[in-house]
Write a protein that binds this DNA or RNA. Structure first.
Lengths: 341, 341
DNA sequence: CCGCCGATCGGAAACGTTTACGGCTATCGA
DNA sequence: TCGATAGCCGTAAACGTTTCCGATCGGCGG
């Protein structure tokens, strides 16, 4: 069942059918209705490849996410949430979604760019991918519109969407301060990653604003994984002026710190309050439940799609679109910081 | 840069270029090499929509996953792992991947089938979607090849890929038996879901094989979430002949049972051993770390792709392909069952 | 020397859609 | 009454590939 067959049965030409189905004005309401009815009766579905071919646009955008961490068996915890958010936001905007696969080492670096050309993709959304991905560099350097969530790469038509990491960290410290804590330490992520650096900056800003002293040993660089948080916690809790609270830049590290406290015979949140970042699934499952700074996955997804549409529609590179979109976070207070919860 | 331009620069016809790039035999090695070189020099990438149009096949398969649980803020824990596995398995088989979006309620039920026709998709992989999805029923009833992972739906060209839930459960009980436990209870998932029913069957089979008695109160139906496991644990541990071990059909419920033990003043695994199912991220983060039956995500993905290819290539519906592919599981022994780990 | 054959290539017709262009009818103002 | 105009529609040319038919050209056996 193609458009010619449908045209024949409707008693009109293919041009009219096309116009009717695409809501063009030059068709009378009567014939439009008849064509519509016949189309759904016959189960006609327009052939997208053919449309793409002649229209030179596919209404499709590509999606890339990190595969580096997967190789280590470690998934970024909220990737799935982002994925869902992006998916629904894109389908709300009437876009189709194609998954791009990061090639193996033997393949060439231009794989993503090639895929964009081959499929006439109109843009790409990149999820939490390390900025040193060479395959991604090629893409970002091209004129393909790109929106990166929780990742930092720059290029001629690129926009970054990210949580307000600094404000989130600041809110966490503020929360601990209001609970009476004055000795607040932090465990950061790898500081070459922008989110980790921003969370540290927020922590430092809050401390300075609140007049808290930050001895150098209160800042430990971790790697976002459990063990680094546990090690940092162990060291911090063994020190003479041990902190009464720890802000960890990732939930896994926060849970590690709680383990360290338990090993040291300390209770949480009584002897040590802990706040994490990200609100991974496990945060609600551990005991005590982990207070944490939750990212607005849906908001991130919607903003990314919106920003990408801006890039696509913009004929000239507007300076206003080049600057990053910052999405607010939300502090979830649970048992690891507030007693009796 | 299209094939005509490339042909002009190579001094051959478009037909020859097409043959060269598609590894057809009727081209001399010399011209093939020249065309190849020129193509990569000029950055030529064939236009997939045009190829799809004329070849009547897109080398693309669709991917559907459940959106029901997401609405509740609950993600299926290993969906992401499956996604990655399917993605790499498909790209290894030189397929492209398109994400299908489950439509909102106002949309029609044929959305998935329509998407398949529109994009010329050659098959669909369905991930952990409830079998009562109407949109999916339409798809399964059509002649579109479908492979469902961890879900059960039947249709004319459908194959199911699933973990060996029964054997996994059996191994868990066996493990507990070997540790000396004789009173082993279980918390199941919703029994109308095949995986939950199969895990219960495996539990029952192991108990009967090992000569363990299963009083009716030892079997509790949960909902895979934390609270149901905690409630079941609380009830079981308050009973006079309380079990010394619990096999939970899901990790969240297993963690809930551990919480119940802690509330009852019991130690894990000393007073109560617990084994879960799925190996979600949190299983390695809680304390004690959760023993669990891990699913082979990569294996599931590879098997699904393989089965789907079989369905696609098969001209006639082969009976051998209709029966489900069962992927073995792996028992991970951690601190919640074995002391001193 | 002739016909045949294999290897290699080109011409041109599809594939299903959109859209520029033009044609027809009816209405309307002058 | 006539030209202009608006509304509606059809014809046909693209879009970039693949592939069916031939065509050409050596080589080779008879």
């Amino acid at each position: 069942m193609n458009i010619r067959e449908l045209a024949r049965r409707s008693g009109v030409s293919t041009a009219t059918v096309s116009r009717a189905l695409n809501d063009r004005a030059e068709v009378s309401e009567a014939t439009r209705a008849k064509i519509r009815r016949l189309a759904s009766e016959l189960g006609y579905a327009p052939n997208e490849p053919a449309r793409t071919l002649v229209r030179r646009r596919s209404d499709t955008i590509g999606l890339v996410w990190d595969s580096g961490q997967e190789a280590m068996g470690q998934h970024n915890p909220f990737l799935l949430g982002l994925l869902s958010a992006v998916r629904t936001a894109l389908s709300d905007a009437d876009y189709h979604l194609m998954l791009l696969t990061t090639p193996g080492a033997e393949d060439q670096d231009g794989a993503h760019l090639q895929a964009v050309q081959r499929h006439n993709l109109e843009g790409v959304i990149v999820l939490t991918t390390p900025p040193d991905d060479r395959c991604l560099r090629v893409l970002a350097d091209s004129t393909v519109p790109c929106a990166g969530i929780d990742t930092a790469f720059t290029g001629p038509r690129t926009v970054r969407v990210s949580s307000d990491n600094a404000a989130g960290a600041e809110a966490a410290v503020q929360h601990l301060y209001e609970l009476g804590h004055r000795r607040i330490a932090t465990v950061t992520g790898p500081l070459h990653l922008p989110p980790a650096a921003e969370r540290l900056a927020g922590y430092l800003r809050a401390c300075s604003r609140l007049g808290l002293s930050v001895p150098p040993e209160y800042v430990t660089e971790g790697d976002f994984f459990l063990a680094s948080g546990e090690a940092a916690g162990k060291r911090l809790l063994a020190a003479p002026d041990r902190p009464t609270a720890i802000f960890a830049a990732g939930d896994q590290m926060a849970i590690g710190a709680i383990h360290a406290a338990a090993d040291a015979g300390l209770t949480v949140p009584g002897d040590l309050a802990v706040v994490g970042f990200d609100d991974i699934d496990a945060a609600a499952l551990v005991r005590p439940a982990l207070s944490t700074v939750a990212q607005d996955q849906r908001g991130l997804g919607v903003a990314a799609v919106e920003a990408l549409r801006g890039l696509i529609d913009a004929t000239t590179v507007d300076a206003a679109q080049a600057q990053p979109r910052i999405i607010p976070t939300r502090l979830l207070i649970r048992g690891s910081s507030r007693p009796g919860v």
